[in-house]
Design a protein around this nucleic acid. Sequence first.
DNA 1: GTCTATATCCTGATAGAC
DNA 2: GTCTATCAGGATATAGAC
Lengths: 216, 216
Amino acid sequence: MRDARDTKDQILDAAERLFAAEGFGATSLRRILGDVGLNPAAIHYHFGGKDEMVEALFERRLGPLNAERMRRFDALETRAGAAPTVASIVDAFISPALAPAARGEEGERFLRFVGRYLQESGEAASARLRRTFEPVIRRFVDLLARALPELRGEALAWRVHFLVGAMFHSMTCREHVSWLCGGVPSVSLERAREELIAFASAGLSAPALHAAELRS
Amino acid sequence: MRDARDTKDQILDAAERLFAAEGFGATSLRRILGDVGLNPAAIHYHFGGKDEMVEALFERRLGPLNAERMRRFDALETRAGAAPTVASIVDAFISPALAPAARGEEGERFLRFVGRYLQESGEAASARLRRTFEPVIRRFVDLLARALPELRGEALAWRVHFLVGAMFHSMTCREHVSWLCGGVPSVSLERAREELIAFASAGLSAPALHAAELRS
DNA sequence: GTCTATATCCTGATAGAC
DNA sequence: GTCTATCAGGATATAGAC
C-alpha cells in the first residue's frame, strides 16, 4: 500500500514525538500506530515488538551522534602541541547532542526521549544503553583523566555521572527552568549548551577531595 | 482485620520499594498490593487511587526533608558576620536529601522514586512537584543569587537546574557509576554527596558567560 | 470501617487476510 | 510483503460483602 521505508520512518517519528512528550511506559503502540493510521499490531511486522522499535529509534540517531563525538575526540588528540582543555573535551561530548537540540524540535525530542527512557527503564534497557554508550563514554573518561590527573577513579566517575545527569535533565524537564528564573516564558537551549559546558567544566576541575577536607 | 495505619504504611513502603526499583509506570497496583497481601482494589479505600497514593508518598517524606532544608537556610542567614559561601548553601540543599540516602536503603529508595517520577511524569505530576518544591527552591535560588551577584536570571536558573538533574541522576542510575570507574563493585553514596557538593559549587561559581566568550 | 468480587477498558502479541 | 482481526491477560475503578 505504501513504501515500507517511509512507513518505518513515520512510525519512528511518531514514537519519538510521543515518547518525548508523555514518557515511554505511558505511550501505547495503539497511540503511536494510530497517529500513522495503522493497526497497533503493524509494529510486529515492521520491527518485531515495542522493544525492538526502541532499538531502531536509538540506532537511527545514536550512531551518527556518537560518531561525531569520536571525530571530535580524534581532533582534540591529534592537534599537535596543546593538550586539550577540560572545557574542550566536555564540549566535544556535549555539543553533538545539544547543538542539534538547540537548532530544532527534532533533535530535542530525541534527547528528551533518551532521558526519560534512561530513568524509566529497568535492567534490560540499562544494559542496552550501556552497550551503545560504553565506547564513547570510556574515551571521554580517558581524555578527562589525562587532563585532570589528580582526579582518581571513583571521583571522576561520579563527576562524569553528574554531567550526564545534568545533560539529560536539562532536556527532559526544561519547563522547570522557566519558573526557576522567575517566569521567563521561553528559555534558550543554545544558552543551556553554553552554560552546561561552563558548569560541568568547572565542576570537573574542582579540587579533588581528600579525607581531610570532608565536610559534615 | 488489621490496623489501617499499619496497612497504609505497609502499602506505601511496598510502593516506594517497587517504584524505585522498576519505575512508576511499570509498577501496577496489583504488584504493590500483592506484596502486602491485599486485593489490588484496596488502594481505593485507603488512598482513593494511584495518583493520590503518590501524593501520600511525597507528603510522608518531602515535608520533613524540605523543613530541614529551610532550617539549614535559616541557620546560614542568621549566622552573624560571615555571608554564606556557595558550598555551604549547596550543602544545605543537597545534604538533607543525600545524607539519609547514604545512611540506608530507605532514604535512597525515596530519592530514586522521585527521580524516576520526575522524568516519567507528564504535566500534572510536574505541577504537583512544583507546588511542593517551589518555596524551598526559590529560597535556594535567592541565597545563591546573593552569593553570586554576577550570575543573572537565566544563567543561574540553568545551573540550578543542572544541579537538580545531577542530584537525581546520581540516585536513579547509580549502577552506571560502577562501570564508569572501571568496575568498582560498590560505590559510596556518602562519597557521591561530597563529590556533588564540590562539583556543583564549582559549577555554580564558574565565571558568568558573556556574549564575547561563547564557543562554537 | 476494611477489604474483595467483579466490571470495563486497554495493553501487546499471535495468527491469518489480502 | 504489508497490514488487520482478534486474543488472552493486565490496568484501574465501581459496587458490594463482611
